[in-house]
Simulated assay, not measured.
Amino acid sequence: MNHDRYDDAYIREILTNTRTIALIGASPNPARPSHGVLGYLTASGYETYPINPGIAGRELFGRKVYPRLADVPVAIDMVDVFRNSAAIGGVVDEILALPVLPKVMWLQLDIRNDAEAARLEEKGIQVVMNRCPAIERPRLIG
Results as ranks from 00 to 15, higher is better:
L15G: 01
Y40P: 03
A56P: 12
R12N: 10
A115E: 15
A118Q: 05
I125W: 05
E13G: 08
P102K: 00
T18C: 01
E136H: 02
V127N: 10
D4Q: 12
E47V: 00
V127S: 06
A118Y: 15
E116R: 02
T18R: 05
N84D: 07
E122N: 12
K103T: 01
P102A: 00
V72K: 00
L101Y: 03
G54V: 13
S44W: 07
L60G: 03
A9S: 14
I51R: 15
L41C: 07
M78V: 04
Y6A: 01
Y66L: 02
Q126V: 09
S34G: 03
G25W: 08
L98K: 10
I55Q: 15
R5Q: 08
L69G: 04
T42F: 03
V72D: 04
P28S: 05
L120Q: 08
A70K: 08
A118R: 13
E47L: 01
S44M: 02
T48M: 09
R12V: 06
I88R: 13
L120E: 01
D110T: 03
K64L: 07
V81M: 03
L109M: 11
T18K: 09
M1P: 11
L109W: 11
P33E: 12
A22T: 03
I21D: 02
P133A: 02
F61K: 05
E116Y: 00
I135A: 15
A43D: 14
G89S: 14
A97F: 15
Y10R: 08
G142P: 05
R131H: 12
D80S: 06
T48F: 00
N130F: 00
Q108R: 10
E59P: 15
A56N: 11
N17L: 07
E59V: 14
G54W: 04
D77I: 01
C132Q: 07
D114M: 07
R119Y: 13
L107S: 06
D93Q: 12
D114S: 13
E122P: 02
L69H: 03
V65H: 06
L23Y: 04
L109E: 02
G62F: 14
N84R: 13
R119W: 03
R139K: 12
R5Y: 13
P73E: 09
L98D: 09
D80H: 04
G39M: 01
D8Q: 13
A75P: 13
W106D: 12
E94C: 06
L38R: 05
T48N: 00
K64W: 04
S34N: 07
N84Q: 12
D93R: 08
R32C: 09
L41N: 01
V72W: 05
V91F: 11
I111R: 00
V91H: 10
D110M: 09
L38E: 00
A97R: 04
L98S: 04
P133M: 07
A75I: 06
Y6S: 07
A117G: 07
F61I: 05
N17Q: 14
A117C: 14
G36N: 04
L120K: 10
G57N: 14
I135Q: 14
G25K: 12
G90R: 05
D114T: 13
P53M: 03
P28F: 15
E59S: 14
R131A: 11
Y66F: 13
V91Y: 09
I141H: 08
G57I: 03
T16N: 02
V127P: 12
S85F: 06
E13L: 09
L96F: 10
R63K: 08
V37W: 14
V128L: 07
P28K: 15
I111C: 08
Y49N: 06
T18G: 04
A31R: 12
H35C: 03
